[in-house]
Write a protein that binds this DNA or RNA. Structure first.
Lengths: 232, 232
DNA sequence: CAGTGTATCGTACAGTGTACGAAAATGGGA
DNA sequence: TCCCATTTTCGTACACTGTACGATACACTG
């Protein structure tokens, strides 16, 4: 046994790679938040010294760009062969789930403006489905802006909420209720007490409701033959 | 003339205040980006030393919370007396404009989760208009989630775009076109060349299109008497 | 063995938020 | 006027950030 093997100890040293660096970066951001993702914490998690990372990555910025692109790569591409409404619904749901798994990606979208290949592929496939469905170029642009705005915005709201998933711990609701007891904000109180704070409520359920509204409205833009909505 | 006045020099020393600190913080974020907003840069802009800020502000986090709330305070509250569609349209437009003036606020929405009073007032007024229009509590929640998701998401996309406003400098479009010339992304190329890069195109124009689609769709949720949309 | 790329790291520097306590300015009785 | 208590400002220091620059170790060839 050589000395090198001893100093390395029990920890088998996987040889590090750009892949491994980026994967680990996503994991840290998921578990401890994007704020905890530093070059030093990343290196530590990889069992390596900080400066070693710069062999695989020019700077932290490209890590951020790359992990945003990895989020997009988790979203299954819509198929140009399926029905556009079904494909767009599935895409929306998958996209929201991905952004829920990686909420930090939403904030990065605003600051990092150089999309990666997975992002471009995703956009291209989505546009293709809309064009194939019969939307004109202009209507495709309108529809896409509408759909993506909704999806991003919903994910953003979801990320900003203090509660997640069905039911809510009372240690969360109590201070909210107390804050509202001032008498201002009567409508917020109404919505909260009669809807949001009711047992079983899950804000996430609102997503498909709004998505269906949009998809139904978009169907009205199509020529009658392809339009499945209830229209004149 | 006293010595104090001499040492202070030409620069009249407005006596610093929480107001002034926060206003200056917004201005720095607007002009140089949220990344340039540091306690040191803020102090320098105010003609003061960094630690002086902490007399008015507990930490940087409350500055971030407060400037997000200031953005909401710029949005005129919808009136409960107007027609709900007109009020919601005006609110959406005002909100998008505010987020366009202060793009950094979008990213902060994701990370800072304790809303200020202006934010709460805004939400309350909006919910009030929808309730007054005849939407049930549940439908109000659905409508609100849908509208706000769209508005936030649109602002997010707008902030992420490399170009802003009508027309686009060719030094921006050129690398994009080149990137697409690989032959992948055919639909992106189509949308870009036949729509987005056409002279006079402004992505911001997409906003009211989508907003109208949503408002029209929401009208279908109302009882017939109050429903102004084309419905069975 | 020497030599050549590949991969890892030590050290150092400017910049960040802010804890802690000292200093200055201010204002009001005596 | 002096004194003192409050209010307001600041100096210094510390832990932490990204990363520039150059040295080192490693795995191969020849």
């Amino acid at each position: 046994m050589k000395a090198a093997e001893i100093t390395e100890g029990t920890q088998e040293r996987t040889p590090l790679s750009r892949e491994r660096v980026l994967r680990c970066a996503v994991e840290i951001a998921d578990v401890e938040g994007i704020g905890a993702l530093t070059m030093r914490s990343l290196a530590l998690a990889l069992g390596v010294k900080p400066m070693s990372l710069y062999y695989y990555v020019a700077n932290k910025g490209v890590i951020l760009d790359a992990i945003v692109d990895m989020v997009f790569s988790e979203i299954e591409l819509p198929s140009i062969d399926g029905h556009w409404q079904a494909e767009m619904r599935a895409r929306g749901i998958a996209m929201r789930q991905a952004l829920r798994r990686h909420p930090w990606a939403i904030g990065l979208l605003e600051s990092r403006t150089s999309p990666g290949t997975a992002t471009l592929r995703h956009h291209d496939a989505t546009l293709g489905v809309l064009r194939q469905a019969g939307f004109s170029v202009a209507l495709t642009a309108h529809a896409y802006a509408l759909l993506d705005s909704y999806i991003y915005g919903f994910a953003l709201q979801e990320a900003a909420l203090p509660f997640n998933g069905p039911d809510t711990a009372s240690e969360i609701t109590a201070p909210i209720v107390e804050l509202f007891s001032s008498g201002e904000y009567p409508h917020l109180v109404e919505i909260a007490t009669e809807h949001v704070l009711k047992p079983g409520y899950d804000f996430g359920d609102e997503f498909e409701i709004g998505l269906n509204v949009i998809l139904t409205a978009l169907a009205q833009w199509l020529p009658r033959a392809e339009n499945h909505g209830p229209q004149h």
